[in-house]
């Protein structure tokens, strides 16, 4: 199975996702975590239940990854770290495609096995966050 396919310039959504992703990465790189606006992203689920939600730690994961601390990012939220990495790759790839690179990632079929695997990853990630947060 081929991982990349020949392609034209990036689509509007590829550009939009890259712009949004680039903004997120820049915000994570520049803004301090302990001051507004990032400090305003408190999790009401955690405050109410003392348990982390699925996305808890993503801000720290993004910040750690853009400061080149991958282990810290994985510790903050493993899937968040993977998402941050994917966003960075997408931004770079889109920039390359804008510069004339004519290859794009190939789409893969979302089978039942892929869906179940993704759900299992989400569950494991959540379990990790809950266990890590226990005293």
């Amino acid at each position: 199975m081929r991982c990349v396919v020949r392609s034209g310039p990036p689509s509007a959504h590829a550009l939009g996702l890259a712009a949004a992703g680039f903004s997120l990465l820049m915000a994570a790189a520049v803004l301090p975590l302990d001051a507004p606006p990032l400090s305003l992203f408190a999790c009401p689920f955690r405050a109410a239940t003392s348990l982390p939600c699925l996305s808890c730690g993503c801000t720290h994961a993004f910040a750690a990854l853009v400061h080149l601390h991958p282990l810290q990012a994985l510790a903050a939220n493993p899937l968040g770290a993977l998402a941050a990495g994917a966003v960075a790759v997408h931004v770079l790839w889109t920039a390359l495609r804008l510069c004339g690179f004519r290859y794009a990632p190939a789409a893969f079929p979302v089978t039942r096995r892929v869906r179940l695997g993704a759900i299992a990853m989400l569950a494991l990630n959540w379990a990790f966050l809950i266990l890590r947060g226990r005293p």
């Binding site: 689920f45 405050a47 996305s55």
Partner: peptide
């Protein structure tokens, strides 16, 4: 329900 910090928890809080 799963990702975006349950709205009901926010209301309760």
């Amino acid at each position: 329900v799963l990702l975006c910090c349950a709205v009901c928890a926010l209301g309760l809080l």
